[in-house]
């Protein structure tokens, strides 16, 4: 008997994306540029995070027509974003046939208390997490892939670095925690006990964890890879830069050869101007997307 939508099948697609770059795109033309550059998937959006941030107001799921056109344009997997807690947007995206749903803090949350019950979907979900507790709560809800939240649309990698370092440091701490202390560890982290035990047993998260939120240069991508993430999401960093084609390709190359400084030097040459960046302290705390949906 064939079984669809099992956790193995959902998390398996994310495993196949490891070491790759997933790019935000808003048109079929951009999707083709991403595929040509070597992206392992694209995120179909109406606006990239930098434009969502600039526009303000309520950001929602993209128009299905845009998503379908992008799905027709490329053979690589297509992801799309639903608002946190908006299970109907998610059902619509599943019905469209997208390959992954990002329950994303980049959009305005539809529910300020509860996330989507991701277990009842056949399509897999990716969610943002800033620390181990948040990560394990999302996996508990059924997420099959994680990413750092970073601070989307800023071109400033500092928050993604903070979230990745926090995650790795908490995992290291957990690995050194004796079994009799795991329940209290789970209580303090606000994480499901069984998942805490599983992380200790595996020595790592049970699903892949990509970097996202503020990655703008090949060096940023290589930095995140060296900090221990499994792959890279680039949102505004490509199509808000002066030369998207060259930058997209360079970020793919840098993700692969993240541990080779001389190659990275070669890869980083002559890419034109990166996207304009925003200093995090200039964004009021209540306007920071990473604070949404913990």
């Amino acid at each position: 008997m064939a079984e669809q939508g099992t956790f193995c099948v959902k998390a398996g697609l994310a495993e196949m994306q490891k070491g790759g770059v997933i790019m935000d795109v808003t048109t079929p033309e951009q999707a083709k540029i991403a595929e040509e550059a070597g992206a392992v998937a694209v995120m179909a959006l109406e606006r990239v995070p930098a434009d969502i941030r600039a526009a303000g107001g309520v950001a929602r799921m993209a128009d299905p027509e845009i998503i379908l056109k992008i799905m027709e344009a490329v053979t690589i997997p297509v992801m799309a974003k639903a608002r946190i807690g908006h299970f109907v947007e998610a059902k619509i995206l599943e019905a469209l046939g997208v390959d992954y749903i990002d329950e994303s803090e980049v959009l305005t949350p539809a529910d300020d208390e509860f996330h989507i019950n991701k277990r009842e979907f056949t399509v897999p979900f990716v969610c943002g997490a800033r620390n181990l507790g948040e990560a394990l709560r999302r996996i508990g809800e059924g997420a099959a892939m994680l990413r750092t939240k970073g601070e989307p649309g800023t071109g400033n990698v500092v928050e993604a670095v903070r979230h990745m370092r926090m995650m790795m440091s908490e995992i290291r701490k957990l690995l050194n925690t004796p079994d009799e202390e795991l329940m209290t560890f789970a209580k303090q982290a606000g994480a499901p006990y069984e998942l805490v035990c599983q992380v200790k047993r595996l020595g790592r998260l049970p699903v892949v964890n990509f970097a996202a939120g503020g990655i703008a240069t090949p060096a940023d991508a290589a930095l995140m890879m060296q900090l221990g993430c499994d792959g890279i999401f680039v949102g505004s960093g490509i199509f808000k830069a002066k030369e998207p084609k060259a930058r997209a390709k360079a970020i793919v190359d840098a993700t692969l050869h993240h541990d080779d400084p001389s190659l990275l030097a070669e890869i980083s040459k002559g890419l034109g101007e990166a996207m304009p960046g925003i200093e995090i302290s200039s964004i009021r705390r209540e306007e920071r997307m990473q604070e949404r949906g913990c």
Partner: peptide
Amino acid sequence: RQRESFEQELSIPVLGKEPFPAVFIR
């Protein structure tokens, strides 16, 4: 697409009688 991905046990004669757990992803 991904929603059609699945797992199924297969008979693979060169691997012996025991069915093989096959995971198909896109």
